[in-house]
Each structure stands twice: as structure tokens, then as C-alpha cells.
Design a protein around this nucleic acid. Sequence first.
DNA 1: TAAAAGATTTCCT
DNA 2: GGAAATCTTTTAT
Length: 193
Amino acid sequence: MNCEPETFNRSALEVARELIGAELTLNGIGGIVVETEAYDLEDPASHSFRGETPRNRSMFGHSGHAYVYRSYGIHWCLNVVCRPGSAVLIRALEPVWGLAQMQERRGQVEARLLCSGPGRLCQALGIGREHDGLSLFQPPFRLAMPSTISEIAIGPRIGISKAVDMPWRFGLVGSAHLSRRFPSTSTPADAPS
DNA sequence: TAAAAGATTTCCT
DNA sequence: GGAAATCTTTTAT
């Protein structure tokens, strides 16, 4: 079944939240999306903020397609394109399919560290420049939206230097595969200072 | 043509 | 907790 990619032609904030719990695979290898971040056209932290460039052209392309970029000259990061100039960064997966292949690529066995980070999950799934611009709803990719509602954690995004306070990071509550813990929101009595 | 920044991960102290 | 590794893209001169 194909979820219509038109579903993604909306604000990255909405899509980022709805992607928690979705199934994502590349050549049959992948798992459940447990952590995302939204990047908007009018967002100083977004690659698209200063307009279209050769690198970010995919962010202005078809919704439901991939925007893959090189991070710190070392890693690859995968985004799902929403409406033009906005995208959702996939930050972590719960590994489900192709565990052995992931372990081989990552060179380690701890399941918790296979896909818990944007660079890690791209290495585990074998994502690279050749996947930039491809549809996530057609082979070798597969993306299926969640069938049940999950409890969502919300917090500020990670690793950015602009708009650092915007709560545009979403995660699956209780997941052991998050790249980092979310700040505790409703525990006023635990302030150590 | 040169310089700086960057949506990270890993290893060391 | 802190810093190195590593290189592409973008911006400034």
C-alpha cells in the first residue's frame, strides 16, 4: 500500500510528529522511526533558510522524497521533504529488520547504538548521496505511516546554533533507541540546584 | 581564491 | 565532560 505522498505537502512540524512510529526501510533493512526534527523554510537553523542552493535543491523538490546531505564531512543525514523548503530530519530508528547487516556496517553489536542518531542510522541502512532526491514510497525505500497513535515527547533540537529554543524535536516516549534523552518537562521537584 | 561553519560521532582524560 | 576527526558547501575577499 502506498500512503499518498501528498500527505507530506504540509508543515514539517505536523509531519515530524506524525512520523513517530512509522516504518522505514531501505532494501528491506530498517525499523521504526522513534525520533525526528522539523526544519522549516523560515527557520534560521534550516539549510533552506537562505534559499535554494545546489546542496539543498531536494528540499525544494517533491514532498515525500529524500533530502540527503553530508554532515561534518563524515556522516550522511536523511530528511523527508515536506512542503517546499521544509523537511523532517530522521534522527533515530528502533532497529527491526536486517539487524545482522546493520551490525556489519556499523562494526559493533550493541543494538541500542545501531540507529540512535542521524549519522548512525544512515550508516546502518547504507544511505548515501545516491539516495538524495529519491521517493521514500518506492523501492529501494519503503515508508509506512503508523497505524496506532504513540505518546510523543517534545523538546528543543540538537546540535544547532540558531533557533536553539524552538521545541521542534519529537520522540517516542520510553524508547531505548533515542539519540539523547528528552529534558524532563513535568518534574518541577527534581531541580538539583 | 580563501576562509569559516556545520541538523555528528567517537575517543580520550 | 571535552576535543579531535574530516570535508563539503557556502560566503566573503
